[in-house]
Structure formats: structure tokens, C-alpha cells
Amino acid sequence: MTEDKYDVQADGQRVNGTVKWFDPVKGFGFVLSDSGGPDILLHANVLRNFGQSSVADGAGIEVTVQQTTRGMQALVVHAINPPEGAQAAPLADFDDVDPEVMRSAPLEPARVKWFDKAKGFGFANVFGRSEDVFIHVEVLRRSGLADLQPGEALGIRVIDGKRGRMATEVTAWEAALSQS
């Protein structure tokens, strides 16, 4: 789970919901509130303020919303959770790795070197280290994200795996900074 570390209070109501869809190229998407009601507009700038450039369709999300003349809009993202069932599909790269080792790996601040969603992978660099860290698209999905942009700041849990240094989780930048 990715959570904000700042208790940003904005005028509005805190809502739990599910990402209906989000298109980083268009710069927006929509959230369905768990309590029903109209779709909630999620603008890319609101997501970027949380430290992410994308969010996976079906991801759980906690946002502060406000009614505007154009409908309900998200003002602040507080948390992003992986889509239901995201942990169900095994990732062969981690078959031989103890799940406790993955969970206990430190969360480290990093920047995206490049990521190609069509290829299904990319690389990041942890600050202060020269080696690349492999990021699989399935790890993004399990982290509640859909895509990464070059230069984007992240928090990642890294292990030594079948492909060398590999990310097992991707979070907001602020989460890694608070643990380093």
C-alpha cells in the first residue's frame, strides 16, 4: 500500500473508491466511490502531488473530493492500494525468493531511468548506487500503478534476483524518504 506522509487537509470529503480508469496521456481518469454516487474526476496533477504519474485501473484509492460546477473532483490523493487479486498471479522472477525477504527489504529512494509499458519492464537507479534495478510491469500492477516516466522519483524495495537487482515493490517517493 502506498500512503501519503502528509496530512493534507483540503475543503472536501475523504472518500474510499476504485480507479475506474486513468490515462496519463490524457492527463485524467475517474474514480468510483465505494459509497456510490457520480464518477470522481482524478486529474494528473492531483496524482503527481501524491508523487505518482499513473495509477492502475481497479486500484483502491483514498481521496479528498469536492463538488464543483463540473462535478465531483479529487483534490488530494491519500493512499493507493493494488487492484483486487493483484497478488494472486505469481511472478516467476520471485519463485525462489522467500516472501519475508521481499517484505523486509528496505524501501529506498530511486529515479526511473526508463520504462516501456509495451515491453513490460524498465529500470531505475537507487540514489548513491550505480547499478540498475529491474522493474517488471507486474510489480507496478501489484503496487497499484500502471506506468512510469523517465526521471520520476519513486520508493522501491530491491532484492538480488534472477535478473540481478530487482524491484519487488514501488511506492511514492515520500514513503522511501521517510524510511531512509
Rank of each mutant, 00 (worst) to 15 (best):
E3Q: 08
K5G: 10
K5N: 12
D7F: 14
V8Q: 07
D11T: 08
G12A: 08
R14N: 13
V15S: 03
N16V: 07
T18V: 09
T18P: 00
V19K: 01
K20Y: 10
G27H: 00
G27D: 01
G29P: 10
V31A: 02
S35R: 06
G37K: 11
I40E: 04
L41A: 13
L42H: 11
N45Y: 09
N45D: 15
V46N: 06
R48D: 11
N49H: 10
N49K: 15
F50Y: 09
Q52W: 08
Q52E: 10
S53V: 11
S54C: 07
G58Q: 03
A59E: 04
A59K: 07
A59L: 05
A59N: 09
G60F: 07
G60I: 05
E62H: 00
V65Y: 08
T68H: 06
M72W: 05
Q73K: 13
A74R: 09
V76T: 15
V76M: 14
N81Q: 04
N81E: 03
P83C: 05
G85I: 07
D93V: 01
F94V: 12
F94D: 07
F94H: 08
D96A: 02
V97C: 00
P99M: 13
P99S: 08
E100D: 13
E100V: 14
E100K: 15
E100P: 00
M102D: 01
R103E: 15
P106C: 09
P109E: 11
A110M: 13
A110K: 06
K113P: 05
W114A: 04
K117W: 05
K117Q: 14
A118P: 00
G120I: 10
G120C: 09
G122W: 11
N125T: 15
V126N: 12
S130C: 00
E131T: 04
E131Y: 02
D132Y: 13
V133F: 05
V133T: 10
I135N: 04
H136L: 04
E138W: 02
G144C: 10
L145V: 14
A146Q: 14
E152C: 08
E152T: 06
A153F: 07
R157K: 15
R157A: 13
R157N: 13
V158I: 11
D160E: 14
D160L: 00
D160N: 05
G164S: 12
R165E: 03
T168D: 10
E169R: 15
V170G: 02
A172G: 03
A172M: 01
E174Y: 01
A175Y: 03
S178Y: 08
